[in-house]
Structure formats: C-alpha cells, structure tokens
C-alpha cells in the first residue's frame, strides 16, 4: 500500500500548445502548469477544446507547435507509459471483464499469480467482482465506465486523464466513480478530468481549468475559480451552469 497522503506524482506542463484546422484555432494554450496536489478539473462549453487538450497532454495528438513536459521531460514513450486515459466513450475489448484487466497486467509482465491477485483487488475496488466472467461489452454504461477506470488504474499511472467519465451515469454510479477517483488521487495519482457537472467540480477539484474557444481562460484553486471567477467567460459559464 502506498502512503495515503502521498504527494501527487507527475507534474504536467504544457508550453505554447497550438492546434489549428483549416485556418481556425482549435487549441491555443501558451502555458498550463499542473503541479498542485489533488484533482484538476477542466470545465468549459461544448467544443471548448477540453478533449483536445487531454489528447495533447496524453500524447495522442502531436500539436502543430509547443510541447508537453512531464516531470520536466518531453513527453516520450517512458512518460506516456506513466499516463493512462479514460475516454469520453469507454472502449472495452470484446472480452470478459477479467480479460480486459488481464490484458493490461500482462503487458506489464506480471506473472500469473500476481495478475490474479491484482485483478481481484481491482474488481473489488470497482464493485465488479460479480461481473468478472461477463463479457465487457454487455456491461451497463456505469459498469463499463468503472471497468475502463479500473483498467486505466491497472497500468499504475502517475497521471490519469478522464474525459467526462460520469456524463451519462445515474447519481449512484457517479458517486461510485467519484470515490474511485478520490482514492486514486489520495494514493498520489495526478487526476486530470473533464466534466460538465459543476457540482462534481466542487466535490472533487483541488484546482479548476476553465476553457473556452480553445483557450484556457482561467486556472486556479477550485474555490476561487468556482466562487469568484475572474474572467467574464468563466462567470457566464458558471451562471449558465447554475440555471440548468
């Protein structure tokens, strides 16, 4: 067991990120530093570039300009291997729940007994023990999302990206996933998560990144950004969010 008050690992920094498409700017982030403890929540309207930013930080998209640094190193294979991502729509292998987790553990070259122990722990953590032998594709939305998170955690990441992991889930499922995320965070995993749920941001975030039109319009401690947003864009977004 890692220390529950472990420092958050994996400092992330983006410098001069630029992504365009047909002359329009999709993402323009001169500097973003994620080095504080606790989860970072990214908020912003549809099309703000939140998913794009996550993909960039995770090295799935190479930006036209700029770079991403993890612990001061350029994002290379070693750095990427220390990151994991849960996508907006979970992609599960067409195998059983257990096999989805085993896939990742095998890649980490754990031996059979070690894998079995770890799979049991993970299934327990995600409340999926009863579904171990079920085909992953037949899971409900919430269960599938939990499995996707477990599989990401199975890679033992230092940084975990989550793209709206609870956007289609009921309150109970949302709560289960938030607990998993907070547990991972308390173990020192850096959480970078996109959400549209301002309540969720309040519950989870240590710091909040506000995005609009491909720009980071505000980044700061959660209570500051959520209570007294400095930018007009953030104020409007939060006000709209409260009306819904």
């Amino acid at each position: 067991m890692r220390d529950l008050t472990a420092d958050t690992m994996g400092t992330l920094e983006a410098r001069g990120l630029l992504i365009g498409h047909n002359g329009s700017t999709l993402l323009d982030v001169p500097r973003l530093l994620l080095d504080g403890p606790g989860p970072t929540l990214i908020l912003g309207p549809n099309g703000a570039g939140k998913s794009l930013l996550l993909r960039c930080l995770h090295g799935l998209i190479v930006p036209e300009a700029g770079r991403v640094l993890q612990d001061g190193h350029n994002l290379g294979p070693i750095q990427k291997a220390r990151q994991a991502m849960v996508f907006q729509r979970p992609v599960l292998l067409r195998r059983t729940v257990t096999a989805n987790l085993d896939f990742v553990l095998r890649r980490r070259r754990l031996n059979r007994p070690a894998r079995r122990v770890r799979i049991e722990e993970l299934l327990h953590e995600g409340g999926l023990a009863a579904k171990a032998r079920q085909s992953a594709r037949s899971l409900s939305g919430g269960e599938a999302q939990r499995l996707a998170i477990l599989r990401a955690l199975a890679t033992e990441p230092e940084v975990l990206f989550l793209d709206e992991p609870t956007s289609a889930l009921d309150p109970a499922a949302t709560q289960a996933i938030e607990k998993m995320i907070l547990r991972a965070s308390s173990r020192g995993v850096r959480i970078v998560m996109v959400t549209h749920d301002i309540g969720q941001a309040r519950r989870l975030a240590a710091d909040v990144v506000m995005m609009q039109g491909g720009h980071v319009v505000e980044h700061g401690p959660a209570d500051e950004v959520l209570q007294n947003p400095r930018s007009e864009a953030a104020r409007r977004y939060l006000a709209g969010g409260l009306l819904i």
Binding site: L60, P77, A81, R94
Partner: peptide
C-alpha cells in the same frame, strides 16, 4: 486511440484485433 493510450504499438495491435 485506446490501444495507443495503453502503449500498444501498431504491430502489437494486430493479434489483439484478430482475437477480438
């Protein structure tokens, strides 16, 4: 994207895809 995220190379993805 998911396989790339998990660090599976293009070549290594072939058996995964065939099996699935």
């Amino acid at each position: 994207e998911q396989l790339r995220s998990l660090g599976v190379s293009c070549l290594a993805s072939v058996p995964v895809l065939l099996w699935d």
